[in-house]
Amino acid sequence: MSETSVSTEVAEAVVGGAGAPGAPAPRARRSRRSAEGGSRGGLAGLLGYLPVAFLLVFGGIPIVFSLLLMFGHLGGPNAAISELGQGEIPAHGIGTLGAITQLFENASYRQDIFATVMVFVVTAAVVLAIAALLTFWHRLRPSKPLAVLQFLAVIPLFIPVVIASFSLWTFWGDRGFTNSLAQLAGWSNGLIFSGRIQGVILAETWVSLPFAVLLLRAGVASLGDSSLDAGRDAGARPFTIARRIMLPQLRRECTVVFCFTAVGALGSFTVPYIVGPSSPVMLGVDAVNTYTAYNQPQQAAVIGFTIFVLAALIGCVYALGSRSRRVGRG
């Protein structure tokens, strides 16, 4: 599955399609009517394609250049960068896999891939679990503490990622709050997450939580009371209602949360750069280091491509997770 088609699939889920949560129906009707009322091709089409043209020039075409660079085509559009780069492996004929095999033969690079996969899988699972717990619980038993909890979960949205990373790095560091607390409590092993993969997972969870909570909150709000009441009337406990009634109806939203969190963690640089260990590093940090510190653009392109492939795998998860037919909502 190509990266674009993956994005399109995910986009369709969020754009609306059949199952977008909480869509304001009258508003949508007005929108369609107004759009149909002014149906025109030419100028509107030109204006509409402006952002696409920008993204094509600075997003689409560069990806093709980068692929050529990865396969050793150092001339043409890649000539300028190749002149400055080091350790390049030029193509003979249609291309070379030299840069790819060079990296994958390196045990440290394989460890980086493993660490990256572990971080984005665990982060996505933890974020989904927390967001589901907060939103489902509040839907079943609305209460002030849970409303406050949902508000707290959205706070990271207001903090720039670089500040969040620095803040978490100091808080969980060897002279940070958590370790001081642990030492005062007599725990000699301490409580340090900074400089560790666990710290990266916690920090990624911190920055990803708002999107997950907002999306699932919209999802649970759109669930009809009738289905939940039916469960209650039958004497079901909240956990059973959440598991057997809410979860199946919100499978698409949960899949979107999981996949977007995973892609966000996969493509992150700032969090693992500041909070994470020096080895193994996540692929985002690896790519930047390879380009800026080691001056190896071809190898950096290979790492970028590895990230794209992993993102495509996440897209496959999305495709599988969103196949289920949604039951109606009251």
């Binding site: 993956v6 986009a11 892609v263 493509g267 992150s268 794209f308 993102a311």
Partner: peptide, 9 residues
């Protein structure tokens, strides 16, 4: 939906 860092690279 693209991993941002690989897009920049």
């Amino acid at each position: 939906a693209f991993p941002r860092i690989s897009l920049y690279i």
